[in-house]
């Protein structure tokens, strides 16, 4: 119970005092995510350094405690990490951070921010591919 109460306090703290909330100036990637089933939404902002490490991260959003606290927690978790590493993170990361007992039946809410971060990584890669394809085409001429 103590353990559970600690997780509850941790989650409520992140919900009521969110870290890294608000739009990021000059982001490299902006990605929106949402759970249509419950109306949770988050927008993740990412800025990368030259080594594709996350040099800046923030979020905006609206929704339940779990989804918004998870977004706040995840910004702290991924800051400074290589983008490629974030793409490898699984739901377990979030569950471990937030307490299995509390989020086991709320996985969609808990993983919304993580999945949006991963989608942001994909979007960035797709953009890169498109850019290099465009460059390749230009070279062809």
């Amino acid at each position: 119970m103590n353990d559970k109460q600690a997780f509850i306090d941790f989650i409520l703290d992140h919900y009521q005092n969110p870290r890294n909330r608000g739009a990021l100036a000059e982001p490299d990637i902006v990605m929106k995510g949402g759970n249509p089933g419950c109306g949770d939404i988050v927008t993740m902002y990412l800025r990368l350094d030259g080594d594709e490490r996350i040099a800046g991260v923030s979020f905006e959003g609206e929704g339940c405690t779990i989804s918004q606290a998870a977004a706040s927690i995840m910004t702290g978790k991924v800051l400074g990490k290589p983008l490629a590493e974030v793409s490898q993170l699984g739901a377990e990361t979030v569950v471990d951070e937030m307490g299995r007992e509390l989020v086991a039946n709320r996985l969609r809410c808990a993983t919304l921010a993580l999945n949006t971060l991963k989608a942001a990584g994909k979007k960035y890669r797709a953009g890169q591919a498109a850019r290099s394809a465009a460059e390749a085409q230009i070279e062809d001429f």
Partner: peptide, 8 residues
Amino acid sequence: VHPHDVAQ
């Protein structure tokens, strides 16, 4: 309070 939180 979000409805999911109420229910939980």
